[in-house]
């Protein structure tokens, strides 16, 4: 691959890396595994870069690898996880008394990581990545009905566990100096 293609891939990777790692983390609950999945996906994309670019959607290409690889990992590790019952990695503890919505975000993240893998994957693909039910079903290798029911159950659990409700968003924005909500890389 020539220098221009390398530079193009590098810029793509710098933009895609944080989001891919977070996707892997959302799907597996493990930070180290998430980084491995993201590296694997990006290395495969690099190996096939000209073809990936001709297809026109490198984001979808690497996302699919991360999702598939996370499912394969889960199948291999499921027995171990059931036996040990160890909880997934949670968010790093923040400083006490922060008035910037950290506790709400941490509570939601913990609740998200506690969801069963299928529900977590459905809600992440549907509501974080904004995929259609058909796209999410294709990526997960299940039916559209399955995606609907998994996502519905996941949202119900998140509402109970983490107070996931519109009024919580409005009240955060009305406070004083705070971290911005919304998109982060």
């Amino acid at each position: 691959m020539d220098a221009a293609a390398d530079a193009e891939f590098t810029e793509f990777m710098l933009g895609a890396w944080p989001r891919l790692v977070r996707l892997g983390y959302a799907l597996t609950g493990d930070r180290g595994t998430a980084e491995d999945l993201a590296q694997t996906a990006l290395a495969r994309a690099y190996a096939a870069w000209p073809r990936v670019m001709r297809a026109g959607d490198p984001d979808a290409y690497v996302r699919k690898i991360v999702v598939n690889a996370s499912r394969d990992r889960f199948r291999k590790r499921r027995v171990d996880e059931l036996l040990t019952g160890s909880p997934p990695d949670g968010p790093a503890a923040g400083p006490a008394g922060r008035a910037d919505g950290f506790d709400d975000r941490a509570a939601l993240l913990t609740a998200l990581l506690r969801l069963p893998a299928g529900q977590r994957a459905a809600v992440v693909l549907r509501y974080w990545l904004d995929l259609t039910e058909t796209e999410a079903a294709a990526l997960l290798g299940c039916s559209v009905g399955n995606v609907k029911s998994q996502a519905s159950r996941a949202l119900a659990k998140l509402r109970l566990d983490a107070g996931l409700a519109p009024r919580a968003v409005v009240s955060e924005c009305a406070e004083g100096p705070q971290q911005a909500e919304g998109a982060q890389q």
Binding site: Y25, A34, A106
Partner: peptide, 19 residues
Amino acid sequence: VRDRIEAALGLMQPPAAPV
């Protein structure tokens, strides 16, 4: 919902991209 999940996942800070 997406914005809340985005903000929650934003707590997880990846390391620098190992290009």
